[in-house]
Design a protein around this nucleic acid. Structure first.
Length: 325
RNA sequence: GGAGGGGUGGCAGAGUGGUCAAAUGCAACGGACUGUAAAUCCGUCGACGUUAGUCUACGAAGGUUCAAAUCCUUCCCCCUCCA
């Protein structure tokens, strides 16, 4: 399906040749835990491969926390095209499907422009949905405020009742929502084949899987830096919006911790420490996800810094091979 | 100097003669994950052993007792109040 003919590299590593510079169906995925350098890698690849970076990070979708969510700098965004960063208001509730629609649109547009879509981010579920598809469940009304009992599942969805742990409030809620809206149990829906939104695409995935230990120092320093860059002001402005605390944007790492400090409930040191701990825990969850659930063509075992030629070359090589199926 | 309170597993903090290797929370470690996913949840968590079990543990040292983290004595340290 892919056509490598006409593709070659110049000394400077750019794709050249062919009427189109990249064949139509290739999507490059760059996945990795927070602070692993994936944004930098995506950007470096984009600048060599005439690519467009498309965000696959749930929190970088929101516009009010560019610092805390470690969004690429304005300078970076000017150097290389970046899409889907800061496109959602914090008062909105993002979702896999919402992201997927936007991402698919951006990918198609990128192809049309003859460029290479580079989907980069740390939200495993988003990337998984893009590559493997989503369940064909129609959009259902979110019943966020309500409380749902695990026991009640028995009455309409025995399978979910057995599968879901009583404490798993998020999934229990979804089971209720789906049944209420469709009359069909979510466990039944899940038996239907996944629907790929981009069946014509060929995905080439790069995953960064550093040791958690190697991430700790980077995470710590990055959080220190975020404070210097004005993370507290960012949080303060968010607080002024007086949004519901269960909104995704309000749960972004650092937001609950620093709001507690700004409300004078904990010391600044304590808030910082907690933010670091929680970020490390998050990184671990991401590593677990990517390690087990994302099949990758290239695996980097340590963090990426910037302009690491050997790494870039390796990925570009694999990309070239990967394309000539 | 006087009066009181306290020292428990990496931390916080229950326990106050046996059912205690010691509740619970946090951290740590591992895992899951199909429309909130930076979410949500699950497992492990003194050491050795697959299990039975063995050993070392509740500030230190002695003692009482069949049996002590729990009672007694002395010592060390911490906190509060009064001087």
């Amino acid at each position: 399906m892919a056509n490598p003919a006409g593709f070659t590299f110049r000394n400077d590593g750019r794709w050249i040749g062919g009427g189109r510079r990249v064949q139509k169906d290739l999507v490059l995925i760059v996945a990795g835990p927070t602070a692993s350098g994936k944004s930098q890698l995506a950007m470096d690849l984009a600048s060599r491969l005439s690519g467009v970076v498309i965000n696959a990070d749930s929190m970088q979708m929101y516009k009010d926390t560019p610092i805390l969510s470690a969004m690429p700098s304005n300078e970076d965004m000017e150097t290389v095209p970046h899409k889907l960063f800061g496109v959602l208001s914090s008062s909105k509730r993002g979702s896999v499907a919402g992201w997927l629609d936007l991402a698919v649109r951006e990918i198609k547009k990128t192809w049309k422009d003859g460029k290479l879509p580079i989907v980069a981010g740390g939200t495993g579920m988003y990337i998984d949905a893009l590559i493997n598809g989503v369940s064909p469940i129609p959009e259902v009304e979110a019943k966020i405020g309500e409380k749902f009992e695990h026991d009640g599942l028995r009455e309409f969805d025995i399978e979910s009742y057995k599968k879901l742990k009583p404490g798993d409030t998020t999934r229990i809620r979804r089971a209720y929502e789906v049944f209420a809206a469709t009359g069909i149990a979510i466990s039944e829906w899940h038996k239907k084949p996944l629907v790929k939104k981009l069946p014509e695409a060929e995905f080439l995935a790069v995953k960064i899987l550093p040791l958690k230990k190697d991430l700790e120092e980077k995470i710590s320093k990055r959080l220190d830096m975020m404070l210097e860059q004005g993370a507290l002001t960012e949080v303060l402005r968010l607080m002024e919006k007086d949004l519901a605390s269960d909104l995704p944007a309000m749960k972004a790492l650092g937001v609950p911790e620093f709001s507690a400090y700004l409300r004078d409930e904990v010391s600044r040191e304590k808030a910082l420490e907690l933010a670091k701990v929680h970020t490390n825990q998050y990184a671990k969850r991401q590593i677990t996800w990517f390690k087990h659930k994302l099949k990758a063509d290239v695996i980097l075992q340590k963090c990426y810094s910037r302009a690491e030629e050997s790494v870039l070359k390796k990925i570009i090589d694999v990309a070239q091979k990967g394309v000539k199926l």
